Simulated assay, not measured.
Amino acid sequence: MTRLLAADALAHPAAAPPAGPGPEGIRPGAASGTTAPGRWSRLAAPAAVAVTVTLWASSFVIIRWAAPVFSPGPLALIRLVAGVAMLTLMVLVLRRRMPRLPRLRVLAMIVVYGALWFAAYTVILNHAGHHLDAGTTAMVVNVSPILVAVSAGLLFREGWPRSLFAGMAVALAGIALITLAAGDGQISLVGVVLALVAAVTYSIAMLLQRAVLPGMDPLTVVWLGCAAGTLAVLPWAGQAWTELQAAPAAAIWGAVSMGVGATALGFSLWAFAQTRMPTGRLAACSLAVPAVAVAMSALTLGEVPTPLAIVGGALCLVGVGVAQLGRR
Rank of each mutant, 00 (worst) to 15 (best):
S144E: 12
A120Y: 01
V53G: 09
L125D: 04
G73V: 01
L107R: 00
V53L: 15
I146K: 10
V84C: 12
W65L: 14
T52V: 03
Y121Q: 15
V143L: 15
G29Q: 02
V84I: 08
M109N: 04
P74C: 01
S71C: 01
W117C: 04
A119V: 03
V140F: 12
A36L: 13
M86Y: 06
A138V: 09
G25D: 13
A30T: 02
G38Q: 13
V81E: 10
L94R: 09
I110C: 07
G83T: 01
L132T: 03
G33A: 02
G29V: 01
F118L: 08
S71E: 14
A45L: 09
T35V: 02
V81F: 11
R105K: 09
F70A: 00
G25K: 05
L132R: 04
F118K: 00
L80G: 03
L75A: 14
S41Q: 11
V81T: 09
P28E: 15
V61Q: 09
R39P: 07
L92H: 00
R79Q: 06
G29A: 09
A119C: 13
N126A: 15
V84R: 01
S59D: 10
A66P: 01
V141K: 00
S59N: 06
W40T: 03
A120L: 13
D133H: 06
T88F: 13
L80M: 04
V141T: 06
V49I: 14
S58K: 00
A128P: 07
L92N: 03
L107C: 00
L107H: 02
A45V: 05
G25V: 05
A85K: 01
A120D: 01
V69I: 11
G38C: 04
T137W: 04
N142I: 08
A31N: 05
T35Q: 05
T54G: 14
A138N: 05
V51E: 14
P145C: 08
V112Q: 04
G114N: 07
S59H: 03
P46E: 15
A119N: 05
A67E: 13
L104G: 05
N126G: 15
A67S: 14
R100M: 10
S58F: 12
M139N: 06
W40I: 09
L116V: 05
V91T: 08
D133K: 00
W65R: 12
A36I: 09
S144F: 14
A115L: 13
L104E: 11
S58N: 05
A48Y: 08
T88V: 02
A45Y: 04
I26W: 14
G129N: 07
P72A: 09
V49G: 09
L87F: 02
A82F: 06
L80P: 10
R103D: 15
M109E: 15
N126V: 01
V111P: 12
I26S: 13
S59R: 02
V53W: 06
A67V: 02
P23C: 12
I62T: 12
V106R: 08
I124K: 01
V61K: 03
P46I: 07
V51H: 03
R97Q: 15
A44N: 04
I78Y: 04
A85F: 10
P99A: 14
R103K: 07
